[in-house]
Design a protein around this nucleic acid. Structure first.
Length: 363
DNA sequence: CATACGTGGGG
DNA sequence: TCCCCAAGTAT
């Protein structure tokens, strides 16, 4: 009897390896699926339930380059405050940006609102039920379109995120470094994607990557695909996926000005939509570079705080010199606006600006 | 295709 | 302290 399911490519003294099968992964998922606020579990899905596309989309946007623990409280807050995409579409920009503060990658929040308004105004408040339609939405790329199509609509889309790349690289012992390997890893993922249970399958691979096939110390002993894993056989799982070497982050310097009016109001400035921290509230200040120039937003006696605020962004380290001043009621700023003490919440600021506030208030 | 774009947690 | 990373997208 032939064994067509066997992989006969033999490396060294290895035993025959099984081909990875979606069914094995789905069986594992049926027993080990994570319980997440935006998710419909495999049992409920089998009973015919589907998750709300709005919640799936919202979670997928939040989860871009962001961990599940970081997302959970934001997801709860957003869905409590804006239960439907139409509610979100009607929100004030500043409220959404404030609610997103601390989660990072703020272009996501701007695109989130754009997308909600497109869905509300051009699609009657209903998310498009196709990969192509989803892909056309602001902030929705190939991954998110596939994930929403599969999870919310059970469309058999190939979903390739960082988890899938890692799992495919290991299962096939693929040593080509990322991002060069992306096309071949996508092909491998497509070859494994089943027609049945696309939503469960997409979540199953991501759960596998998040809980078993982790970047460090993978729990291969618990893996449903261990018998099919070429990296396990070769002992290379810890070094996969290979990645192009990273550049060192340069250090940039800046000055931030924290002005408090005698009535307690704080001088803040809305940053332009484009660029770093775009659309967020922040302290007025200098540019961030090698040699920042003074740029006080209002005439005052500025005092420099001893400690500088340190913060690391995606591509540089920032050391922020903080200057504070107390200014009288009748003096007008040349940049920014005073926000009444009762209207100001530090939590509305992006983290770097909140750090500056904490330092200035504490010192 | 390379780069810009945040943050918090873990080793 | 420092580096790596986490369900990517836009340009």
């Amino acid at each position: 009897m032939r064994a067509p399911a066997r992989n006969h490519k033999i490396k060294g003294m290895s035993a025959l390896r099984d081909a990875p099968r979606a069914a094995e992964l789905l069986e594992w998922y049926d027993r080990h699926a994570r319980d997440l606020p935006w998710r419909i579990g495999p049992r409920a899905r089998a009973a015919g339930l589907r998750p709300d596309p709005y919640r799936v989309w919202l979670s997928e946007i939040m989860l871009q380059q962001t961990t599940v623990p970081a997302v959970k409280p934001y997801f709860e807050a957003f869905t409590a405050r804006w239960p439907t995409v139409v509610d979100l579409a009607a929100a004030e920009d500043a409220d959404v940006m404030a609610a997103w503060a601390g989660l990072g990658y703020y272009a996501r929040a701007r695109n989130l609102l754009k997308c909600a308004r497109v869905v509300a105004e051009e699609h009657g408040g209903v998310f498009p039920a196709s990969h192509e339609g989803l892909l056309a939405l602001p902030g929705v790329g190939p991954y998110t379109a596939g994930a929403v199509a599969a999870i919310a609509f059970d469309i058999p889309a190939t979903v390739v995120d960082g988890n899938v790349e890692r799992v495919m690289a290991r299962v096939h012992d693929e040593h080509t470094p990322l991002p060069q390997a992306k096309p071949v890893l996508t092909e491998m993922a497509a070859a494994l994607t089943p027609d049945a249970r696309p939503g469960d399958y997409a979540q199953a691979v991501m759960d596998l990557g998040a809980t078993i096939c982790t970047p460090r110390n993978p729990a291969c002993g618990l893996c449903p695909w261990r018998g099919a894993c070429a990296a396990w056989e070769a002992g290379t799982m810890a070094e996969l996926p290979k990645k192009a070497p990273k550049k060192r982050k340069p250090v940039r310097h800046g000055i931030a000005y924290l002005a408090r009016r005698v009535d307690g109001a704080w001088l803040l400035e809305r940053r332009p939509d484009k660029g770093l921290l775009g659309g967020m509230l922040g302290w007025p200040g200098s540019d961030w570079g090698d040699d920042p120039q003074e740029a006080p937003p209002i005439r005052a006696e500025w005092k420099t705080i001893e400690a500088e605020a340190r913060h690391t962004f995606t591509h540089f380290h920032l050391r922020l010199t903080l200057r504070t001043a107390l200014v009288p009621m009748d003096r007008a700023p040349c940049r920014g606006d005073f926000i009444e003490s009762s209207d100001f919440r530090p939590g509305d600021l992006p983290t770097v600006m909140r750090k500056a506030f904490d330092l200035a208030r504490g010192g």
